[in-house]
Design a protein around this nucleic acid. Sequence first.
DNA 1: ATAAATTTGGACTATATATTCCATTTTTGG
DNA 2: CCAAAAATGGAATATATAGTCCAAATTTAT
Lengths: 274, 274
Amino acid sequence: MPELDAPTTIKAFEERLLEVSSSLPKRLRQCADYVAANQDRIAVSTVATMAEGAGVQPSAFMRFCQILGFTGFSEMQKLFRESYSGGWPDYSTRLEHLRDSGSGSPSALLAEFVDAGRTSLESLLKTMDAEMLDAAVAALAKANMVHIVGYRRSFPAASYLAYAFEKMDVPAMLHSGIGRLDSRHALRPGDVLIAISFAPYSAETVELAEAAHAAGVTVVAITDTVVSPLRKLDALILSVSEVDFGAFRSLSATLSLAITLAVAVGTMRQNGKI
Amino acid sequence: MPELDAPTTIKAFEERLLEVSSSLPKRLRQCADYVAANQDRIAVSTVATMAEGAGVQPSAFMRFCQILGFTGFSEMQKLFRESYSGGWPDYSTRLEHLRDSGSGSPSALLAEFVDAGRTSLESLLKTMDAEMLDAAVAALAKANMVHIVGYRRSFPAASYLAYAFEKMDVPAMLHSGIGRLDSRHALRPGDVLIAISFAPYSAETVELAEAAHAAGVTVVAITDTVVSPLRKLDALILSVSEVDFGAFRSLSATLSLAITLAVAVGTMRQNGKI
DNA sequence: ATAAATTTGGACTATATATTCCATTTTTGG
DNA sequence: CCAAAAATGGAATATATAGTCCAAATTTAT
């Protein structure tokens, strides 16, 4: 058989499908039509399901895959599973490879981290809950004082927020934990606390957020996964899932969210006052 | 076992995950964290892949599925496959849409800042001087102690560097200026100073860098324009031009550069020692 | 410090699913 | 209308993957 090479991108796949579909016998044509109309199901279905959907026997569907240039259904499915957009590249293993293979020149590393940052930014935009963001901005705009807490890897974001609020003339206080002073008594009614914490959630941050919640202070939480302990307080949740490499994460998305908060809140306050 | 009913919606799944995750032993907790951060992967992965991602044995992952209330991985996967609607979200159109609609809303601002971050990252990759970067990494890898200084808007980057060096077991000291202590005497021969400063260059940073230079301590400067005073000391210059909005800048590029330095230096030290 | 209980890793088994093969049916061309 | 070629359906087989079980390691309680 003069079997052709298998398509390696969805685009190539679509072209091949179009190209082939005009000269297909009945059953195979059904396959083509069904696939064209249900591309998204390929990644999560079995041959049997696809065949049933198309109204043909599984073996017919197999032949269809082969005509398209794949060795079988599995190979075709692989294409769709890999290019399934939700699938982030697995950075930690990629990084290990880079380092192990000695090709880990600083420049190569930089390229990886830049790429991770880009991915995080895109994902931030796709997943941010606009209503939650509006609500958080509104709450912060009305606050007497904005408290900010975030330790360890969240500390850079916390300190940036403090800087940005200061620039926007928003009264803000960074709880840095210096001197182990217990700062929870600074939380007064009418204040708002921004708590930033990512897995593994540092105990101090969670405690302060809990204290705030107990004292009736509104909490805005910048956090990641659904298992975050910050979700248990009924806080305004701003979800940020940053691509990470073991202990590191680029923070690009978190920082962008931070500036947004500061500018939006600052602007709203100025408009309200003047 | 008093096995509970399996979650039938993603929402219920997330709740169960949150509910259960606090009382989980090490390996199972890894599963929970990985799943929380990679929900979208479940539909298109095998147990083996998921287990590898979470860093556990497949059998551990199976147990995890069962604890969540499913009979096994297949049942859990079924939930995600069924509620998988396809729909690859299109980032660029979404961005345009966000910007067009209601300019000035927090979401529109976010879109702007995300875009700025992306631009900065791209430009970082294009303009980074690979040789300079190599030289900086080499110098830092040989240092007895790495000193880090950066105030005001550079402080988040400085604190992130301190965090990342700590994680990589590189002895590092963050000069934070707390209590106005004069820390310049901590600079010893054989040390290296990373000075981070962007226009307008804060006097304290420049002074410390000058003191270091005078004391024969190598200076690595992360800075922007060609008029930066840090360029006068013959330092190793890492140029970062971050897109900015008046007083703000996203810091995405600076932070990516920071992780790169930490990982590259940490790796080089570990390889050299062992 | 010791015993009990829990957790873990990995070998083993069961099962679901893909893939092939071939007898039967349908289409095509003379 | 017949023979040859192509297409089809379904049974048989191979393979990948899920799921189980238990001995070893770890943690916890006494």
